[in-house]
Amino acid sequence: MQHALILIGVLIAGMGLSVEAGLLGPLGEQVGHLSATLSIFMVGALLLSLALVFTPNRQLGTLFKQPRWLLTGGILGPVYVIVLTLATPLVGVGMTMVGILCGQVAASVAIDHFGWLGSEQRRVDGYRVGALAMILAALWLM
């Protein structure tokens, strides 16, 4: 049951991401895509800095005791934005999103299946293949 609640929460967060994209696209046209992206990261970083101050039992020190590759998450976000910015004018938004989503879903299943990046192994089963097929079909229908 708890699992279902988490999935619904993530689904709602994903809906927010579409709103973000809807705001970011026009903003990027006006002020430049890198500036628009900067506004997201900058405002986010400032808000979370505030949140951090009021977080009980925060463990900031442990961040820098982790293996360095675990700290690279923040570098990957801008990489994605650059790919998006370069590809969209060349192949269009539709094709861009299909390519990104295919890569995203395939990689996420592979990461779970092989237990890459230190994640717990979750093997591909019939249900997961079915879910993949349904996402691809939905993409094609849109």
């Binding site: 990957l76 790919v83 590809a87 995203q104 990046l117």
Partner: peptide
């Protein structure tokens, strides 16, 4: 490149 961009997003989720 687009596939790689998507894979990067999945990797980011996993790492974070």
């Amino acid at each position: 490149i687009l596939l790689a961009g998507g894979a990067v997003l999945a990797a980011q989720s996993s790492i974070n």
